[in-house]
């Protein structure tokens, strides 16, 4: 007598059944569509954003009816006209744009040496320490970090108390433009370092030794070898820092104390203070447009750098 089929484990039978179902639901002839089927959930999820944009576009053409405090039924370009002509919006927009440029420059200046040391060091302990010092603030979130700065920089904060001990009267370190920019640089550093690191890893160390043995000092090696080769990293890092700091909400809100609003704060106020949804949607859409144009221009000029996803070869 043949041995019973108990030697055929249950898990195999289960897999057989699943395979049969999979084959029935999805015949082999459909296999060209497999990648699309796999992409479908992600496409649907991101589709929520597209729907949201569509709703914002619709709202942006409706003005606030001051009699009823409801958005108007008819469409007009009034909100866009206001966005481009009112001084408040111009002030906020230029403050955010200039701020994000400064933050990007300063962040990259600090991120490059950090990334370089982290990638090139021969000590695994040092590398791990630098990585942990980077990930800890990255994983803690903006609100807690801003709260830490409040404790350090506040009028009764550590810095001012320390200054008081040596007889210096308190300085207002918070609720001004530099405080916001400083907070943003701190917030953006981990992003920038993590975008730069893969690009620096890709540069063979022999290149630098070669430049050195041909007589270049380290400054010239950096300028002519390392920095040009790290370009994809700088593009990725610069773009991320630029767009994230341009559109940040928490840091200007907490460290700016309401006096240093960035665009995101202005949009929030339109929705929740003035209750002018149309105006808020208009500003948000313009911000989306500015951000997308920036990303588009950089991608078109330099490629996606370390930001690219998908096939790498």
């Amino acid at each position: 007598m043949r041995p019973s089929r108990t030697s055929y484990p249950l898990s195999w039978r289960l897999m057989d059944a699943l395979e049969a179902i999979a084959a029935a639901v999805w015949p082999r002839s459909f296999s060209a569509a497999v990648p699309w089927l796999m992409l479908l959930p992600a496409v649907v999820l991101v589709g929520l954003l597209v729907l949201g944009l569509w709703d914002m576009a619709d709202g942006s053409f409706r003005t606030l009816d001051t009699a009823t405090f409801l958005p108007s039924d008819d469409y007009s370009l009034t909100n866009y006209h206001r966005a481009f002509t009112e001084k408040l919006f111009f002030t906020v927009a230029s403050r955010s744009l200039i701020g994000s440029l400064i933050v990007t420059a300063v962040t990259l200046i600090f991120a490059f040496p950090y990334s370089y040391v982290m990638v090139r060091t021969r000590s695994t302990v040092l590398r791990k320490f630098l990585l942990i010092a980077l990930f800890l603030p990255f994983f803690i979130g903006q609100v807690v970090r801003a709260y830490g700065w409040l404790i350090i920089l506040g009028s009764q904060g550590m810095v001012n108390e320390a200054l008081g001990l040596v007889g210096v009267s308190p300085i207002r370190l918070l609720y001004n433009y530099p405080a916001v920019l400083f907070g943003l640089v701190q917030y953006m550093l981990p992003f920038a370092v993590l975008m730069l690191a893969p690009a620096l890893t890709a540069i063979p160390e022999e290149m630098e030794s070669a430049a050195g043995s041909l007589g270049a000092n380290w400054v010239r090696t950096f300028i002519h070898v390392v920095l040009p080769l790290a370009k994809p990293g700088f593009i990725g890092a610069g773009l991320v820092v630029m767009t994230l700091s341009l559109t940040d909400f928490a840091i200007p809100a907490i460290l700016g104390g309401g006096s240093q609003d960035f665009i995101a704060n202005a949009i929030y106020d339109q929705f929740f203070r003035t209750s002018d949804q149309g105006m808020g949607a208009t500003l948000a859409l313009l911000l989306v447009a500015v951000g997308s144009i920036m990303v588009g221009v950089v991608f078109a000029l330099f490629g996606a750098g370390t930001l690219a996803i998908g096939r790498s070869k």
Binding site: G52, T247, L287
Partner: peptide, 24 residues
């Protein structure tokens, strides 16, 4: 095109995504 589409959450500022999602 798929790449650009799937990077939308990144290219659309958080305030824009947040308000869009709030509306829908």
């Amino acid at each position: 095109g798929v790449q650009v589409y799937l990077l939308l959450p990144f290219t659309i500022p958080l305030i824009g995504s947040g308000i869009g999602l709030m509306l829908i």
